[in-house]
Amino acid sequence: MNPRIESLEKMLDGPRDGALLRFSLGNEYLKAGDPAQAAKCFQAAVDRDHHYSAAWKALGKALAEAGAHRDALAAYERGIAVAEARGDIQAAKEMTVFARRIRRALEEA
């Protein structure tokens, strides 16, 4: 197993467990080519912090890579609302582009 993933997983359920840890672990799973596991981590991150726009964006990406396009679209839509409410305009713009691509792909399917 990836040593970074192992190291991060050892911290789960400990005093440092939180949205950032789950987000970091999700990024490592994405790098390792496991988008389904990454999505679980990103979902745990947004469950811990509903206002974490970067985690919403990453959740959408991981779900899309895992083939869960409707769930990815829902994550992006929630992430856009969160980002706009927080004034995170760049994240909102990026997620809007990704959501538009998924909508088009779903319409063509």
Rank of each mutant, 00 (worst) to 15 (best):
D49F: 06
Y29M: 03
A99N: 11
K40T: 12
F98P: 00
D71F: 01
A36Y: 06
V97G: 05
F23W: 12
A92H: 08
P15S: 01
L30A: 01
D71M: 00
S53I: 03
C41Q: 13
L20R: 11
A38P: 09
L59S: 09
P35K: 14
A45K: 08
R86K: 15
K93A: 13
T96F: 02
F23L: 06
L12F: 02
Y76I: 03
I89A: 07
L30W: 10
A62G: 03
L21S: 02
A55E: 10
D13N: 13
C41W: 02
D47Q: 11
A44L: 04
A62T: 04
A105M: 10
A75E: 04
A91T: 15
A72S: 09
R104S: 07
E94L: 13
M95Y: 11
R16M: 11
L30C: 06
A85S: 15
Q90N: 11
E84L: 13
R16E: 08
Q43A: 09
F98C: 00
G67Q: 04
C41M: 09
K61W: 06
Q43C: 02
K93T: 12
F42A: 00
E65K: 11
K10T: 04
A44I: 03
K61C: 02
S7C: 00
G14R: 11
A62L: 00
E108I: 07
E108D: 10
A74S: 13
G33N: 09
C41R: 11
I80R: 15
A91S: 12
A38I: 09
E28F: 01
T96I: 05
L8F: 06
F42D: 02
A64L: 12
L20G: 01
M95G: 02
A54D: 14
W56L: 07
A66Y: 01
A19P: 05
A45V: 04
L25T: 11
F42I: 02
D17L: 00
G26T: 09
D13G: 07
G87N: 14
S7A: 06
Y29K: 07
L73I: 05
E77A: 00
K57Q: 15
A55C: 02
A66N: 05
M11L: 13
A58D: 08
R70K: 04
E107P: 06
H69M: 07
Q37D: 01
D71I: 00
I102P: 08
A19T: 11
